[in-house]
Design a protein around this nucleic acid. Structure first.
Lengths: 113, 113
DNA sequence: GAAAACAATAGACCATTGTCCATGGTTTGG
DNA sequence: CCAAACCATGGACAATGGTCTATTGTTTTC
């Protein structure tokens, strides 16, 4: 599909899709037409964009996501990939812990008011 | 205490302390000396800076923190303050949920590798 | 077949969150 | 007393994550 449709269906703007693509977060097929260079996005990209959006919302950076993607698709080294993913999981869990502690503090503040 | 000591003891740089102060996240007493305008930070600021640091690490923005501070110290309206704090708690919990879902996805990916 | 809608690219622009630097004044240790 | 260390202010700089605009070319639709 073309970028407009992908934007429409994913809820991610064209500009952001191009931005992600420039940064290697998603990959399109080069257009199949001889007369234009419109990119062609496979259905897969819908899943990928949803993942990216959710991951960004969860606080992961573009660099984090590049790491993940390079690890899983770039390398044929499973162990390295596992290490990268494991590291990201640890970071996320640490962040969860930080959030938990702030929530607790705020809830105590609420009680004291 | 002066900014240098606060920086030392809190682990937050002078520049960042000044940045937070400019943005209303902490408040110092105007210096008591007649010959200089060095700011004077009460012990309290140690707690506040620790909270701010942890909150930032948990993903809260400067604007979020301004909201919280304005709500609790600016207004004498307890209900409004409660509403603001409650809203921040909700946002944080939502973020926790997002992180949980990403972690789950990554863990499944790990298994599939 | 012409206008409207869509696409690509490059580069400017924006907010956020600091960090660094230059300048000039103040305090303090030896 | 004087150099080193500290402080304040203002403004420049930087990285991140987009967003917008201009230009130019392609499709689609009436």
């Amino acid at each position: 599909m073309k970028i407009g449709e992908l934007a429409e269906r994913s809820g991610v703007t064209r500009d952001t899709i191009r931005f992600y693509e420039r940064n290697g977060l998603i990959r399109s097929r080069p257009g199949q037409s001889a007369t234009n260079n419109y990119r062609d996005y496979p259905e897969d990209n819908l899943f990928q964009l949803e993942f990216l959006t959710r991951a960004r919302d969860a606080g992961m950076s573009i660099a984090d996501l590049q790491d993940l993607i390079n690890a899983t698709e770039g390398s044929c080294n499973m162990d390295a990939a596992k290490k990268v993913i494991g590291a990201k999981i640890s970071e996320l869990k640490e962040r969860q812990e930080q959030i938990r502690s702030i929530v607790q503090f705020l809830e105590e503040s609420l009680h004291k008011l």
